[in-house]
Design a protein around this nucleic acid. Structure first.
Lengths: 153, 153
DNA sequence: TATTGTTATACTCTATAACTATA
DNA sequence: TATAGTTATAGAGTATAACAATA
């Protein structure tokens, strides 16, 4: 018998992670967008002119999923597709002024969400927790920029 | 500016949690079952004779989802529904001998899965990590016995 | 020929409501 | 009337393949 026969870290991670995902979903709902849309908004904010292919890889979702999320953001006037002049197969994604403004409103929402998952722990513990999680993420090769619902097989 | 402007604990939790869920899914695939089926199997193992309603509450999924998962486990010969004699509306769920055996084979798979998410951290860190996660789970009122894909609104 | 974005399809999980049989 | 389980249906996300435009 080991000294820790019943430790269930992986289980707790799965459980808390699902809660974190759906809590973030609910949090951004007040902005009229979904978590996927928020993720794409942030990605394009950081990488203006990014292609859908590159966005698909960064977000870890299929290209056809990007199309659907993009359609909604474009219909909402937050984001634009522009045909690239150098390679007319690709679209350069850019935020509209409305999209920039939405992104600015997203930041405090994300901060409040972060606080909801960390407010019960003192600063020193939080730094250690963040370090542990980064070690796990690195060992598991999770270097995506945004949340994922699932990991592909 | 705070001293930790960029800490993203909630984000890391969501990302790692999704990875933990899908990794568990892949791990139990070798036993011919899904994570949902494994969860119900373990629940009935711990609570023989439990009703579908109670299982639905423990697992945090709707009653109609329990029906579908149960159908597959029953078709596989792992689990039985028995009409209760005291309340003929309810079913008492019990493992068959085959289900008990499957549950026994599930345990080492779950242990290997746990190890995949903890092997990169030394024992002392793991104890602290588990403590932090339990504190978060308690603060978020996550006392389910099994994984959840999402949290209801 | 290969690649980008798009469309179409199938599958899974979620949520809800309607239904039955029992209480 | 209320409850346990079942069925049916609608919605969202995922994955895949086929397609048009372009390279």
């Amino acid at each position: 018998m080991s000294g820790h026969p019943q430790r269930r870290v992986a289980f707790l991670l799965a459980q808390i992670g699902a809660d974190a995902s759906s809590a973030f979903d609910r949090a951004v709902e007040q902005l009229g967008i979904t978590a996927s849309e928020a993720g794409l908004l942030r990605l394009v904010g950081r990488h203006p002119g990014i292609s859908q292919k590159a966005a698909s890889e960064h977000l870890g979702v299929g290209p056809s999923r990007v199309v659907a999320v993009l359609d909604r953001l474009e219909a909402g006037g937050h984001l634009e597709r522009r045909r690239s002049v150098t390679d007319r197969r690709t679209h350069e994604l850019t935020l509209t002024p409305g999209g920039e403004e939405l992104l600015a409103r997203l930041r405090p929402v994300a901060e409040a969400h972060e606080k909801a998952f960390t407010a019960m722990l003192p600063e020193g513990d939080l730094d250690r927790l963040a370090g542990y999680l980064e070690a796990i993420a690195e060992a598991r090769h999770l270097d995506r920029e945004v949340h994922r619902q699932t990991t592909p097989r």
